[in-house]
């Protein structure tokens, strides 16, 4: 039964937060790319990447299979690297990001949840393996 564990217990709560972020990031990115892609292509492509990562992590954690555990691991890792890198770059070279992404300044616009979420995700995957 070990396969079903990422979606049980506290995993439910984690997946709920991931789900909301997946929805928020996907919608935001879709609006940005559809309405004003030329203004800040790098920032908007990063928004799209973040959206894909959140959707993958949500689905993978919720499916709880052996393969999806690996997908979740990759998604959470990319997410952590992304939020730390984009966070640092957005502070050091602010002109690189004319418009904010989910990960700008380590996710300050989202109460730093984007920074905490991958850490919790990775911890949860490790704990349930």
């Amino acid at each position: 039964m070990g396969d079903a564990r990422t979606r049980t217990g506290p995993g439910r709560l984690l997946i709920a937060v991931y789900g909301i972020f997946a929805l928020a990031a996907t919608s935001r990115s879709a609006v940005q790319i559809a309405t004003r892609f030329d203004e800040a292509p790098v920032a908007y492509l990063l928004s799209a990447l973040a959206a894909v990562v959140y959707v993958l992590a949500t689905v993978a954690l919720a499916l709880s299979s052996r393969t999806s555990r690996k997908v979740a691991l990759v998604a959470c890792t990319v997410e952590l690297v992304g939020v730390v890198t984009v966070g640092a770059v957005s502070l050091l070279v602010p002109q690189a990001f004319p418009d904010a992404t989910v990960w700008s300044t380590f996710g300050i616009g989202y109460g730093f949840i984007p920074l905490v979420l991958p850490v919790l995700g990775l911890w949860w995957i490790k704990k349930t393996s």
């Binding site: 049980t8 217990g9 506290p10 995993g11 439910r12 709560l13 997946i15 709920a16 937060v17 909301i20």
Partner: peptide
């Protein structure tokens, strides 16, 4: 979900 975390999803929402 039938554990205490059932309400956790509603909490987040």
């Amino acid at each position: 979900d039938r554990s205490r975390w059932s309400g956790g999803v509603v909490l987040v929402a």
